[in-house]
Design a protein around this nucleic acid. Structure first.
Lengths: 335, 335
DNA sequence: TTGTACGCGTTATCAC
DNA sequence: GTGATAACGCGTACAA
């Protein structure tokens, strides 16, 4: 393994000078620089970053923790994070937590052992005290999902308003019996979307019926199960709002099973605008989050913390959008 | 930042002894060990791996390069890689190449700069000479996709046999006009699946018709486009084999657009058995690869190279399976 | 069983 | 503009 000493020897200079050339730092004469570069090329020298990182006491690596890489919602967010990271000479480490706090803790070792310089949580599983503990000691940002009460910066949309918009859209179409497919978890987004649902009903003078709230687990199958439950209800429903696209797609499947049609018999609204939302039949009406921008913003926030320029935690809210497609007002091919 | 010296001081021993305790290495008296552990706990000491890694000249990090993390096919493969890695105290770095050779090269810097100890390619974009160059100098494994002629180990299924099985299944159901949705790329898997298609036709005495081969780009939309093209053909088709599930799902959508039904009018077979294949309507018949096992095998192969126990390149072939669902023989709800 | 001392490859400080 | 050299934190001969 050729190192900086070898280069110095071949170029006939000191290691300090080689280092200066490598880092484009102060004052190296053109002639010397040329010699050094020639030696580097000749030896096919690659700087050993293990040495550099130790010396600079940094890893140039960002930890990105998410429940599951294959969740299509996250890919655009991650892309945003990565693009900003790369522009600033950082690499990112993507880690599946499988929504498991102990796995999350395992990966946080990378932070404590100085193998990464900061962490972005896409859906923290830690308790808020543990999370605050991390946030105090290391550059930390929560992105999309966040824990209420943790003193850690976050970037999200207004899930309350988004839930409200989704349900208001259904109400405006004349629906009064609107089922909700939610989840039993402690995500702020879940609670807020649910609250938006209730507020929209209330503002329109529609009585709240607790039987219209069902609980899935973000999976396709749970979406089917919840929809069946709603359809079998006395009084039934004419519309369904699911807090994730995957569950909404499952719900549409259940509707078809009963030989009913979307949107003619049952209108469906999802949440997230994953790519499959425009591939489903009928295409899904949904709430779109600015995923890429959320990722960029989160990474920029983290960089500021790493540079030490900000200390207090900041909360940034970006705009969402209702995307109307076939599942609420469109023409379905199955009709 | 507390370091090994601080621990040594508090425990009243030398740094060497602390290091021995940390690494459970030779001969430390129970009493001393206890003192050291107490000091570690008291100071909340976390070993700085930047130092350790430099000293040991390793990063304990594996580079995993894939076209796109959100491609659902890869998530199980990655899970296999990760489980084996973790069991051996390695972390993995997942990197999106966007199927772009220059991005791939960017990430390979991590290897050359000693920030990772080996690389697994899920779909190499490099030319075979460049790939061989990497394979010669660093622990390297290709997984699923691979470059023919590169002297680098790989783990895959027999794509030729799998393509054959898929098409034979359609022929056994009585189909004679079978369209193929392939891709214009240089992947071995593509060529082999295509060759399997042709061989199955040949073995059954069905004349080959080049117009029945269409080319997409693995996307849903391209699947729709190719299917439309096949359906509009003079003589039409009664079945379609797509070399990816996503394109197959797109094809089913195109069939419905023409007010035809799957599988009554057109049978469809996909490839990969992604989770959406059992969520589509109708559920998709497809070829299943042992994704998790492929990942485990690849990582084990890599570990052997890192340990230096094997040098020559090895080629491992795992078993595939035809999963028959509604899109070829089942009952569709739309009929 | 334990301690001393060196070196891993690099960068940064201080001379000149 | 350049060189000598001391760190960075850790692991491991070698000595005791």
């Amino acid at each position: 393994m050729t190192n900086i000493q070898d280069v110095a020897k071949v170029a006939g200079v000191s290691v300090a000078t080689v280092s200066r050339v490598l880092n484009n730092s102060s004052s190296v004469s053109a002639k010397t620089r040329e010699n050094v570069l020639k030696a580097i090329k000749e030896l096919n020298y690659q700087p050993n970053l293990l040495g550099r990182n130790l010396r600079r006491m940094e890893a140039r690596m960002i930890l990105v923790l998410l429940p599951n890489i294959s969740n299509p919602f996250y890919s655009r967010v991650v892309k945003g994070i990565e693009d900003v990271a790369r522009k600033n000479d950082y690499f990112i480490m993507l880690c599946n937590t499988d929504s498991d706090a102990s796995q999350e803790k395992l990966y946080l070792k990378l932070l404590k052992n100085r193998l990464s310089d900061g962490v972005i949580f896409l859906a923290p599983e830690l308790k808020k005290e543990e999370l605050s503990e991390i946030g105090i000691n290391y550059p930390t940002v929560q992105c999309c999902e966040y824990k209420e009460g943790a003193r850690v910066s976050h970037v999200t949309i207004d899930n309350y308003a988004a839930g409200y918009n989704a349900v208001k859209h259904l109400i405006d179409l004349g629906h009064k019996r609107i089922g909700l497919i939610s989840c039993r978890n402690n995500f702020v987004s879940t609670k807020q979307r649910e609250a938006g649902y209730r507020k929209a009903l209330e503002d329109s003078g529609i009585d709240f019926d607790s039987r219209l709230i069902t609980y899935g687990d973000y999976s396709f199958m749970s979406g089917m199960r919840c929809a069946r439950q709603l359809l079998d209800l006395e009084g039934g429903v004419t519309a369904i709002f699911a807090i994730s696209d995957v569950m909404a797609i499952g719900a549409m499947r259940a509707v078809k099973e009963k030989n009913m049609s979307v949107p003619k018999d049952i209108a469906v609204v999802g949440f997230d605008n994953i790519s499959f939302a425009s591939m489903s039949d009928p295409m899904l009406t949904t709430i779109s989050q600015p995923k890429y921008e959320i990722g960029c913003t989160a990474m920029n926030l983290l960089l500021e913390q790493i540079k030490g320029s900000i200390k207090e935690s900041r909360h940034i809210v970006l705009e969402h959008e209702l995307i109307v497609r076939e599942s609420t007002v469109g023409h379905s091919m199955n009709n």
